[in-house]
């Protein structure tokens, strides 16, 4: 196995390459420096038609760890569809979406562990409480589910007091917060946020802002939104409405 360590003493930053994630963690612990796992997302010439009407045409971009990208566009311009294609929920008519770890494409099976997604079309179980929802998804993903971690997440999205309330009785803003928590459950390197701020109050928007900032330290974010404020969190913007 080859491990290439590139120390660049001229600049304070250093980059290093390795095939196993374990090495990273050890080094992080040793040096006390936050080292990024180099995931990248590559979208090449993605097109999508429904019957004969084209929706997306030749979308290409690349995203590195630490970056955030915003996808803007009018209603019906295909923002959500693009995100769903990236997540693998919809098959593109042409082109491909790949996630790389150190320039090595990642298999479909492992992709599932890398993606967290929030979207209006993704619901949570209304007949469970918020905490039960999170624990259920932990179990489904095969993460050792401890209550502590789930409660931590609830704290992060500001739902701590209502953790044991049935989701049926939740307001739409609270449900949106829970969806955010659900997407963050497995610390995904690629976070897909479709209208993250929908139904949220100003406190909720702060939560979203915080999440995107935190995500920058170890992963990528793609935000689909028309809200000026949400687009501003990103480094780059793709505009789908032409």
């Amino acid at each position: 196995m080859s491990r290439v360590f590139v120390f660049d003493f001229a600049t304070p930053k250093f980059r290093l390459t390795s095939r196993t994630q374990g090495i990273w963690l050890n080094l992080t612990w040793l040096y006390g420096i936050n080292i990024h796992v180099m995931y990248s997302l590559r979208v090449t010439n993605v097109s999508k038609h429904y019957s004969a009407t084209p929706l997306l045409q030749n979308i290409s971009f690349q995203l590195q760890t630490g970056e955030a990208l915003a996808v803007a566009g009018w209603n019906g311009s295909g923002k959500s569809t693009l995100l769903r294609i990236i997540a693998g929920l919809v098959k593109p008519s042409a082109g491909k979406v790949q996630i790389f770890f150190d320039n090595e494409p990642i298999s479909k099976e492992r992709k599932r562990k890398l993606i967290g997604m929030v979207a209006p079309s993704l619901a949570i179980y209304e007949e469970l409480t918020a905490l039960e929802n999170l624990e259920f998804f932990c179990r489904v993903r095969g993460i050792p589910h401890n209550r502590e971690k789930c409660l931590d997440l609830m704290e992060r999205v500001g739902l701590c007091e209502q953790a044991n309330k049935m989701c049926r009785n939740y307001s739409s803003g609270m449900i949106q917060r829970l969806k955010l928590a659900q997407a963050l459950l497995h610390n995904p390197p690629l976070l897909l946020l479709d209208e993250p701020g929908c139904n949220l109050d100003s406190k909720g928007m702060k939560v979203v802002e915080r999440i995107i900032l935190d995500q920058r330290s170890f992963g990528m974010t793609v935000i689909a939104s028309n809200e000026e404020r949400e687009v501003e969190y990103a480094d780059r913007v793709i505009n789908l409405s032409k």
Binding site: L89, I115, A119, A123
Partner: peptide, 16 residues
Amino acid sequence: EAGTIDVLRLSARPQA
């Protein structure tokens, strides 16, 4: 109908 089918697709293995 509940909209949870896509969440399951994203998070769970099909066999599971």
